[in-house]
Design a protein around this nucleic acid. Structure first.
Length: 564
RNA sequence: GCGCCCGUAGCUCAGUUGGAUAGAGCGCGUGCCUCCGGAGCACGAGGUCACAGGUUCGAAUCCUGUCGGGCGCACCA
């Protein structure tokens, strides 16, 4: 909570009382009857100085100079809380700030412009993106965006595993279908891919090259099929992501790590640490030295590296490119790799917690309580594209973002398809659009509403006061969400804000309570409320922007665009 | 068996250095609603915070153990 005058006043009083070292922590109480700001300092120091916390609180309250701190009143409550009621001018002054800062309200400089990489999606080009990738795309993009809003220089990266055995399996699967379609017997290999898309790839191959690869079993031929398949699946993934509103600054190819020698040089560097040994024909790294559960194989008996080695090479290169902070967003089924990759990096001298991980759990798409898997295309999984085609991009993104990453989530299609205020996305967008509608009715251009153009101390209604406090906490919310890599905090906040906004709006229904309407006859009050309405709109819009979701000025438009 | 994550209202989930009477949405109940834009608004019922101990002035939150669910434990990724 930023309330500098109060904070300095409190610190001064504490110093007088010989408690200069204590750190002051202000919070906004949940219960409005507890005032605008609360402080628990009396409790935290009571043991240290051996006085009851109520006594201490009373003393602080008595010594405080209310006026200079912008306080209307203070009271001691419960076990020793100090509850402050701010003067209405202090409360409302934040509105001027919001309107002035406009699109930058909520931004901070905590990151100090330092570089940070967010790596996410990183799907193998072996099939279409499914809903799990969608959750990751929405989360990763929002986390990246939160970092931008809090002052970091963010790089979004996608890592393509285009060099491993999975790709070979894909090529073999496509080749099998290809042989099928050209009238030859063939079966998809063990562990191969069975989705309809494999047949489609084979079809495309036939169309372009006829039976040219039927007899040819050379490495060159299979390589051709592999490249053809990967190229077309990558194209499809790129399209699906870009239509989902997700862009990357860089696509990093695993194959490049082999081509430019980073894999072999990483192996050499690891050997020099003395933590590498040979056993049963394979090459191992002592990752247990760094807390891993067991040592890991880097090079297999057959001479080929496991994925572990290029992973270490890749992350060393992230560091070398200047990213001292990296956040990897991955499915929690990869959590087994976390300790081993970090172990490999520590062996080479990188810090222990590098990189950071946000691991998200699986998604289940349900309709009326039953799980749905409606994809022909991908075999088992529902594809991301099918999902957002049906429920819209905004809703899909929001639903993925509104839950904590580290819990399994239910994606409820019924709730997603609801176009009323019961759907949180529409509820928020509606609140935003309503403000536009007010401005239209008043024939005002919202951008022209200026700070300082009204006496904000006239905003004294309960709904208004609560709403103002709510709006003022937006920067803190972004900060906390960014710190915890937790976009759902923003979702919660926006939903609450929209709820408060709608309550305020409806309370001011002109047919019932004309004196509570924004467009009241009293012009002083009217201009103050217009500033509140504008501030509200700015905060809702900025919050939606952080999440990569549209802030429409008319709802019919939003719903139409969304399901198009 | 070992490791990571989760267990909060009928359902889906929040719960901000450990703080006040544990919250929201949906669903349910009651009342209002020809409005600055609607299936909207107001109010209400509904909880042994999985269980048992411990730390603390204070625990949903921290520690230990138990039970339940998910994921991972490859010379696969």
């Amino acid at each position: 909570m930023a309330h500098e005058p109060l904070e300095t006043a409190l610190k001064a009083v504490l110093k007088e009382m010989g408690l200069g070292k204590a750190s002051v922590y202000l919070e906004r109480p949940r219960d409005p009857s507890h005032g605008d700001v609360a402080c628990n300092i009396a409790m935290t120091v009571s043991r240290e100085i051996g006085k009851s916390s109520r006594e201490i609180a009373e003393e602080i309250a008595a010594r405080l100079e209310l006026d200079t701190a912008g306080i209307e009143s203070v009271e001691v409550a419960g076990p020793g809380f100090l509850n402050f009621k701010l003067s209405s001018g202090t409360v409302a002054s934040v509105l001027d700030q919001i309107v002035t800062k406009d699109r930058t309200f909520g931004r901070s400089t905590i990151g100090e412009g330092a570089r940070v990489m967010v790596e996410f999606v990183s799907a193998n080009p072996t099939g279409p993106l499914h809903v799990g990738h969608g959750r990751q795309a929405a989360l990763g993009d929002a986390i990246a965006s939160l970092l931008e809003w809090t002052g970091w220089d963010v790089h979004r990266e996608f890592y393509y595993n285009d060099a491993g055995t999975q790709i070979d399996k894909l090529a073999e699967s496509v080749r099998a279908r290809y042989l099928d379609q050209t009238g030859h017997d063939a079966e998809i290999p063990e562990g191969g891919y069975h989705g309809e898309y494999v047949s489609k790839l084979a079809e495309a191959l036939v169309k372009e090259f006829g039976d040219r690869f039927v007899e040819d079993e050379s490495e060159r031929a299979i390589d051709h099929i592999r490249k053809f398949s990967v190229r077309s699946l990558r194209k499809e993934q790129d399209r699906d992501l870009s239509d989902f509103g997700v862009r990357f600054d860089e696509y990093y190819l695993e194959s490049s790590l082999y081509q430019n020698g980073r894999v072999s040089s990483t192996l050499e560097a690891l050997r020099e640490t003395g933590l590498v040994y040979e056993r049963e024909g394979a090459t191992w790294l002592e990752t247990t030295k760094f807390g891993d559960q067991k040592d890991r194989v880097m090079v297999r008996k057959n001479g080929l590296p496991t994925y572990f080695l290029p992973d270490v090479a890749y992350h060393m290169h992230k560091w070398a490119r200047g990213f001292q902070r990296v956040i990897n967003v991955q499915g929690s089924d990869h959590h087994g790799t976390v300790e081993r990759v970090r172990g490999g990096l520590q062996a080479l001298g990188l810090p222990a917690g590098y990189p950071e991980y946000v691991l998200h759990q699986m998604v289940r798409v349900v309709r009326e309580g039953k799980e749905v898997k409606f994809s022909k295309r991908a075999g088992e999984n529902t594809t991301l594209r099918e999902l957002y085609r049906d429920v819209g991009v905004d809703v899909t993104r929001y639903f993925f973002q509104m839950r904590k990453p580290d819990a399994q989530m239910m994606f409820d299609l019924g709730a997603a398809l609801d176009h009323s205020d019961k759907n949180p996305v529409y509820k928020i967008q509606y609140a935003h659009a309503r403000m536009s509608s007010i401005f239209a009715k008043a024939q005002i251009v919202p951008e022209k509403i200026e700070a300082g153009s009204a006496d904000l101390s006239t905003l004294t209604e309960d709904h208004e006061r609560q709403l103002i406090n709510q709006l003022g906490s937006f920067p803190d919310v972004l900060e906390r969400a960014a710190e915890n890599s937790a976009p759902h905090i923003v979702c919660d906040y926006l939903e609450q804000t929209a709820g408060a906004a709608n309550a305020w709006y409806h309370a001011g229904n002109p047919s019932r309570n004309p004196d509570l309407a924004v467009l009241v006859d009293d012009l002083t009050l009217r201009s103050a409320r217009l500033i509140l309405a504008r501030a509200l709109q700015v905060v809702l819009r900025n919050g939606l922007t952080v999440l990569g979701i549209a802030a429409p000025t008319r709802m019919s438009q939003a719903i139409k665009d969304d399901s198009a």
